[in-house]
């Protein structure tokens, strides 16, 4: 139903031409990316959406259109089709998968995992771009609605993009909130853990924003304790990270918690259990193990939590 018919778009091109000259800021690559994303996500399994550059992709072309061009319009469209198809499909699906994996790992792991700086930066900029595109497209749709050049697919495509943004925003939200919840429950532990890492330049456990949040939150919590009762106690009871008296006050994540895992690397992994027992994990196998044993594999990505 939504599948594209090249002859239709060739006919409509002269019409579009007038309207689109003013819209040069349309970002062609973005649209290709989005269209290919629609394709890969399979929102409607029954409907085949061909990621042919629809209205948009011809825009850039037509604005450059001049009489000395002797190529057939169909050839040009075909060129675009090829350009639009290949690389972005993989990239975006990849990004989405990475995000889901990162979110799941973070959700299921008892301790805080290193912050995915690169992934988050990329996803955040892409979201921003897509939202800008959405705004532009709405504007474009509104201004051209009367002229009748907007196909009925146009609104649907925008809806799909919007739904997709919502989904990704949800993943991000869950990821960030899960991290914050962990930071809040083991504040003192992570303050100690992350004390030296700021300058070392290695993989940071916390993002700068999270670090700031952690320290500030701890500060106001301490202030609350102090003003409400701690300040009135004898001085030897005023510590918050007291480890004397037989019990430590610093809550630490329970690394022995059992977790469900799936192996994604090709090589089998051999774990040594408490005694002499060995457990061999093979690809695509699903196991329940103590988190401590597979902690490192999760960090290098050989194992994902589910």
């Amino acid at each position: 139903m939504i599948s594209h018919n090249p002859s239709v778009s060739t006919q409509t091109i002269p019409q579009q031409n007038q309207h689109t000259k003013s819209k040069k800021n349309f970002n062609n690559c973005n649209i290709h990316k989005l269209l290919s994303k629609i394709h890969t996500h399979d929102f409607f399994p029954n409907i085949k959406i061909t990621p042919v550059p629809h209205i948009f992709s011809s825009l850039g072309l037509i604005t450059n259109f001049s009489p000395q061009y002797t190529m057939e319009i169909d050839d040009i469209l075909q060129d675009f089709e090829q350009q639009a198809r290949a690389p972005p499909i993989k990239r975006d699906a990849d990004l989405n998968q990475q995000l889901v994996a990162a979110m799941l790992n973070e959700r299921m792991a008892p301790e805080l995992l290193p912050y995915k700086t690169e992934l988050m930066d990329r996803v955040l900029t892409e979201i921003q771009q897509q939202q800008q595109l959405l705004l532009d497209s709405y504007e474009y749709g509104d201004s051209n609605a009367e002229a009748g050049v907007i196909s009925s697919d146009f609104k649907l495509q925008l809806m799909i993009i919007e739904t997709d943004i919502e989904r990704i925003a949800y993943l991000l939200r869950l990821y960030i909130r899960t991290r914050l919840a962990k930071i809040d429950s083991f504040t003192i532990y992570y303050i100690n853990e992350s004390a030296g890492e700021g300058s070392s330049g290695g993989i940071a456990l916390l993002s700068p924003a999270e670090r700031l949040y952690m320290h500030k939150h701890f500060k106001i919590l301490t202030q609350l304790y102090n003003t409400s009762f701690l300040g009135k106690l004898p001085s030897f009871l005023q510590l918050l990270d007291d480890t004397t008296g037989g019990e430590t006050m610093i809550a630490t994540p329970n690394l022995d918690q059992p977790v469900f895992i799936r192996v994604v690397c090709d090589e089998p992994i051999v774990l040594t259990m408490d005694g002499d027992d060995e457990l061999t994990l093979t690809k695509n196998g699903i196991y329940v193990v103590r988190y401590r044993l597979i902690k490192l594999y999760v960090q290098i990505g050989d194992i994902v939590l589910i």
């Binding site: 955040l124 979201i127 921003q128 939202q131 925003a169 949800y170 991000l172 939200r173 960030i176 909130r177 914050l180 924003a209 700031l212 949040y213 500030k216 939150h217 106001i220 919590l221 202030q223 609350l224 003003t227 409400s228």
Partner: peptide
């Protein structure tokens, strides 16, 4: 002192959320 904490934490959360303008973190 809890009211004080409430106000300060509100500021803190707001500050943190402003880093992610495109996502409504409290959604």
């Amino acid at each position: 002192s809890e009211q004080e904490y409430y106000k300060q934490y509100q500021d803190l959360v707001l500050e943190f959320k402003s880093g992610f303008a495109d996502i409504d973190l409290s959604g």
